[in-house]
Design a protein around this nucleic acid. Structure first.
Lengths: 235, 235
DNA sequence: AGTCGATAAATTGTATGCAAAATGTCTAAC
DNA sequence: GTTAGACATTTTGCATACAATTTATCGACT
């Protein structure tokens, strides 16, 4: 057992008694963030006792949090053998992206029915801002606005259940995402063109077409990402 | 080192070789079924102590199960005030159906790429069987086969994450469903026609069209159901 | 009599303890 | 040197105990 947990301890110990937030929820968020940020490697065993000391709480609330995280699919709980950080197979990643594509597609369809003109204009503004970053090849800013636009569309769908699940998905994928903070030149151009189409369909409130474009857009993104990840994770 | 589906342990109970099912999982399934079957009314407070004695276990595993159920959205946990069976507003129902429509739509699209000819033939068989029940106006049998067909399509999508979430959704809606075991004559006919289209698109493996038809089909089903429910739940 | 407030009861949140299962180590036999 | 088995250690699963918060009951005051 020589995996570095001390790091975990220091970062996790940040602040525990900040709110009246029931200890359990605090642990849950902290652990979730911690896993999502990628500080625990997939396949790592996570002894309860060790986590307890890191977090400064007893095992009861910790175990409750672990059960929830397992239900969310972030960790897996083997009977009598404790928790492991869940390992994502390429198939898992494919499934996540397909789900994401489906979610955003559905969100787009709904957004066309419900989005306000003001919200469309805001997304337009974000789009042109993103276009600027694209022209100046400012990758991080481009990614940020890109994600923001997608989030705005999802929010405009007016479906809280969808939004919640969407954010859960993106959280689970964040660990993968940061590995792929790169984009091929030609893919970048194509992504921009797709975004133009997205905006166009949204302006026309053409739900079917927006659903279609968003689905394809996300599947393309997956192809690009999995390509980049395929080499990055085969270390 | 292979390990089996992690979600199966929590969402489904797919591991039965011995009866060593960890007490926690047993409680989880029992409670979930109990709530889904509608034995606990929405808004009911559920004292832990009472549940403990009913189930014959201590509070620790029970609380772990409650946390998971809360994460799944079946109950809500008020801080220091215990668990309540979650109440579904009409908006919640609308959101569920929209999600269901989106899920099945996505599933249909994927199924067109992956389904085997044999599976298509099985669904065809189910379809004609269902058509028989429609002609003879056998409602319960019709509903059963209807749901079976939709499940087959979802299964054919080859996306375990989608399937899991889909079943979670249908479970949450089962409590609403059984209230609406009725269908209007004209809606029934339309539903059958839509199913013909579904089968046709599936045969042609036209993913876009199947996605479109399935989405509309589910939204129509929602309109019909919410109409029936609107009177039934406005007691 | 009604309302507000204080105290008591009940209920939830957390910590600890104990038994069962799993993991690791050491020894002995081949 | 390798492997199998028994014992010790660690870790998980569950139950109970205690602390904190909420809810209920009762009495005092307007």
């Amino acid at each position: 057992m020589e995996y570095e947990q001390p790091q975990a301890a220091t970062i996790l110990n940040a602040k525990i008694d900040e709110e009246v937030e029931s200890l359990h929820d605090g642990i849950l968020s902290k652990l979730r963030d911690f896993i999502v940020e990628g500080h625990l490697r997939p396949g790592d065993r996570v002894p309860e006792r060790q986590l307890c000391e890191s977090l400064g709480v007893s095992r009861t609330p910790l175990r409750e949090a672990l059960k929830v995280l397992a239900a969310e699919g972030l960790i897996e709980l083997l009977p009598n053998r404790g928790a492991r950080i869940r390992e994502f197979t390429p198939d898992d990643v494919r499934e996540f992206f397909e789900m994401l594509a489906g979610m955003e597609s559905t969100a787009g369809r709904l957004a066309c029915e419900r989005i306000t003109e003001a919200a469309i204009e805001q997304i337009e503004a974000l789009h042109y801002q993103m276009y600027g970053h694209y022209m100046r090849r400012e990758l991080p800013e481009y990614f940020r606005l890109n994600q923001l636009i997608h989030e705005r569309i999802v929010a405009a769908a007016g479906n809280h259940a969808l939004e919640t699940y969407y954010h859960g998905l993106t959280a689970r994928m964040r660990r993968l995402r940061y590995s792929a903070n790169t984009i091929k030149r030609d893919r970048w151009g194509q992504a921009m063109r797709e975004h133009e189409q997205i905006l166009d369909a949204l302006r026309r409130r053409d739900g079917r077409e927006l659903a279609e474009i968003l689905y394809e857009h996300l599947i393309h993104k997956w192809s690009a990402t999995s390509e980049a990840l395929g080499t990055a994770e085969a270390e």
